[in-house]
Computed example of a mutant assay.
Amino acid sequence: MKLVHSPQELKSLRKTLKGSVGFVPTMGALHEGHLSLIKRSKLENDHTIVSIFVNPTQFLPGEDFEKYPRRYEADKKICEIAGVDLLFMPTPQDMYEKDEVGMYAPKIKGYILEGHFRPGHFDGVLQVVNKLLHITNPTRAYFGKKDAQQLYLVQKMVREFFLDTQIVPCDIVRDQDGLALSSRNVYLSQKERQKALLIAKSLKKAAKMVQSGVIDAEEIKKRMYDILEPIKLDYVEIVDREFNQIDQIKIGDTIILVAGYVGSTRLIDNIWI
């Protein structure tokens, strides 16, 4: 594995790679969810590039940019063991100029749900993903379904900017107790973790209701709210794959999403129906 810090050096190395290239963008603090993306990239491509970059432009004032978990030495070892070919670890100074060209999320789909509660967040996400895709020029890039709205907006950006990369959605990886894996889970105390499990429990209940023939979105949300009552919620929403609100479940075209706080930790989760 080769460690690279400079975007220019990575672009030069990329030109020497023959065959297909998979890319896994991360903010580090790697866990089994990230590893599942890396494994899939290695399975489907001749080479795999991973980036570790805690991107400042996607954090709002007062969010956890400074305390976001950083475990660079452990992450390097994980990538080496996983068989990553190139590990890209730039600094903010490597990635950004003082007077940047702007990148803006869609005015509607970028400002609902996550975008409503974190206005401007997706501007920063799309800005850095656009840069990373141009630096790595991958055949395929791998994104987790847990960040469902992010995934949708990245796919939209790639399509509308005519980029030659296939965005590959990857299933959520959960711990044995059902909690969706997230780097922010380290913030949770043991008691808070038990409370956080209500999120996965509510989504499981929604899935069971659909399996039993219930397709009314409001009825499903009501039962979810009952389960989630102890959690400070930002939203419980049911949308289609284009992130339009829907009144009834459409099998194969529905995402049920939850976002809320357990203690001071904000968690998101979803299920694709």
Results as ranks from 00 to 15, higher is better:
K39I: 08
L43V: 02
N45W: 01
N45Q: 04
H47S: 15
T48L: 10
V50F: 01
I52P: 04
I52F: 05
I52A: 04
V54P: 06
P56R: 01
P56V: 10
P56S: 08
T57R: 08
F59A: 02
L60F: 00
P61H: 12
G62A: 05
G62Y: 06
D64Q: 10
F65W: 09
F65P: 01
K67M: 08
K67Y: 07
P69E: 13
R70I: 11
R71V: 14
Y72R: 09
A74R: 15
I78L: 15
I78T: 15
C79K: 09
C79V: 10
E80T: 11
E80H: 11
E80W: 14
I81A: 15
D85H: 13
L86K: 13
L87W: 13
L87K: 07
F88K: 07
M89G: 04
P90N: 12
P90M: 10
T91V: 07
P92D: 10
Q93G: 06
D94N: 15
M95V: 13
E97R: 11
D99S: 09
E100Q: 14
E100A: 10
E100N: 15
V101D: 12
G102L: 15
M103W: 03
M103H: 06
M103L: 04
K107Y: 03
G110R: 04
G110D: 07
I112V: 15
I112M: 05
L113N: 10
E114H: 02
E114Y: 07
G115C: 01
H116G: 04
H116Q: 09
H116M: 11
F117I: 03
R118A: 09
R118L: 13
P119T: 10
G120S: 04
F122P: 09
D123W: 04
D123N: 12
L126A: 01
Q127H: 09
Q127I: 01
Q127F: 07
V129N: 14
V129W: 02
V129H: 00
N130V: 01
L132K: 12
L132M: 14
L133P: 09
L133V: 08
H134N: 15
H134L: 12
H134I: 02
H134F: 04
I135H: 03
I135L: 08
T136L: 09
N137E: 12
N137R: 13
T139N: 05
R140L: 01
R140Y: 02
A141I: 03
K145V: 01
K146R: 02
K146D: 00
D147P: 04
A148D: 02
A148R: 00
A148E: 10
Q149L: 09
V154N: 00
Q155G: 01
Q155D: 01
K156T: 03
K156D: 14
V158N: 01
V158D: 06
R159D: 12
E160K: 10
F161Y: 13
F162S: 06
F162C: 10
F162Y: 03
L163C: 06
T165N: 13
Q166C: 06
Q166F: 08
I167K: 01
I167A: 00
V168K: 04
P169A: 00
C170R: 02
C170Q: 14
C170V: 12
D171E: 15
D171Y: 07
